[in-house]
Design a protein around this nucleic acid. Sequence first.
DNA 1: CCTCTTTAGTTGCTCAGTCAAGTTAATTCA
DNA 2: TGAATTAACTTGACTGAGCAACTAAAGAGG
Lengths: 161, 161
Amino acid sequence: MNDESDASPLTGDDLATWAALATVLEWLPPALDAGLARDVDLTHFEYGILYALATSPERTLRMSVLAGYANSSLSRLSRAATRLEGRGWISRTRDPADGRSTLALLTAQGLEVFERATPLHERNVRALVLDPLTSAQKQQLRAISERIQRAIRENGGWAPR
Amino acid sequence: MNDESDASPLTGDDLATWAALATVLEWLPPALDAGLARDVDLTHFEYGILYALATSPERTLRMSVLAGYANSSLSRLSRAATRLEGRGWISRTRDPADGRSTLALLTAQGLEVFERATPLHERNVRALVLDPLTSAQKQQLRAISERIQRAIRENGGWAPR
DNA sequence: CCTCTTTAGTTGCTCAGTCAAGTTAATTCA
DNA sequence: TGAATTAACTTGACTGAGCAACTAAAGAGG
């Protein structure tokens, strides 16, 4: 697995680190989705939307604010909202105070789904991420993740529109 | 291995760790793709295919083996191969030794693209992941990633088909 | 006021990925 | 040997996401 020394090839420990992370980036999201998708019919992304609404005053948020909380583009959120609305889990109304804005509201039914989904989701996160790690590793992972986030922001900073 | 009780909501340090990782899971892949997509017309996943082929004897691999290297389902790989073949970067032929198998070969043109893409990709990986971290953190990240991989495998093990 | 621009969201088009069904080639074993 | 099974892909139908174009409502400037 080690090889030539051109301009700057990734080798040795760096390569191993990157390969290990790359596999996690590929596997973890679908693994997390799998549980939720099987038990409730919900992706991790959709769960995040319900979570943001459920923990908001009035269970209501403007779409653009919700997009921020969900790390999402407005377009992606809009489509997800259409799906969730179709299932009766959220509803959208025009903001009376500013006709351009749309207010998303978690319905009673949506809240129920959220409450059913939450323990499943947390069990997943624990089983796949938190429980296998030592306390020290969890601290490390947090610091590392925050550092990488910063690097992303600084390097042409990718952010959803 | 753990402090917080198993049935209760994520809180405190655990929540912070999870939130930090979740954001990385959401942001890092598109951030990595952005550079490659802009400069060469290649996703990170497609780059992985070229990489696997370029570093193989004869620059050739059976599709199913390649799928393993690329962490991919055969179906996903097959579609990606169709795209890459359309651009003349790989070619597929039936394996003479076993007519069920397909051999994917990196073409000269494909190799050229790979060699152009490699420094860009590595610059990305370094800028976003490796350079911001200390040596100790890189070691930690590797160990953590490997541990999470194992947890995924053990928990109903998600693996691409 | 009446344009001109900006803000907030939605939607048409296209593409990548999943699942399941289909195809062709090897294997098994009765 | 020949029918049934398994293996290795490929493909059709469908879904989710991105980009860019579009609509509607504020706000700004003259």
